[in-house]
C-alpha cells in the first residue's frame, strides 16, 4: 500500500524516458553516448517494471529488474570494451565510420 500515486504517472514518465533514449540513439553519432542512451531505455523499462510490481502486488517485477541490471552491466562492459579497442585504432571514429564489416 505504498504507491499511493497512480501507476499511470510512473508509466507515462517511463514512456517519456524511453522515447528520449530512443531519439538520442538515433541522433547522436558518438558511440559512447549511444551506449548511454541504451542505458536510458533500460532504466525506463526498469521503472515501469517496479511500478507495475508494486501496483499488482507481485515481487516478480523487482526480480526482473535485478536481471535487467545484470544484463545492462554485461552489455555496458562488452560494448565499452569493443569501443576501447576500436577507438584505440581509430581515434575519434563516429558510428558512421564503423562500417568496415559491411559486405
Amino acid at each position: 500500500m505504498i504507491a499511493v500515486i497512480e501507476p499511470t504517472w510512473y508509466l507515462l514518465l517511463s514512456a517519456l524516458l524511453f522515447s528520449i533514449g530512443a531519439v538520442g540513439l538515433l541522433i547522436r553519432r558518438n558511440p559512447l553516448v549511444m551506449v548511454m542512451c541504451i542505458e536510458l531505455m533500460l532504466n525506463a523499462a526498469n521503472l515501469s517494471f517496479v511500478a507495475l510490481s508494486v501496483q499488482l502486488g507481485n515481487i516478480d517485477g523487482q526480480t526482473a529488474v535485478f536481471f535487467v541490471m545484470v544484463v545492462a552491466a554485461a552489455e555496458a562492459v562488452v560494448g565499452l570494451g569493443i569501443l576501447v579497442s576500436i577507438l584505440r585504432a581509430r581515434p575519434g571514429a563516429t558510428a558512421d565510420d564503423l562500417a568496415e564489416l559491411k559486405g
Partner: peptide, 22 residues
Amino acid sequence: LGAAIVRARDSLAINPGTGLAV
C-alpha cells in the same frame, strides 16, 4: 505509449500492493 497507458488505466486499478511485504 501514452495512449495505451491512459487507455489501460482502469484495468490497473486493482488492490495495490497486497502481495508485497512493505
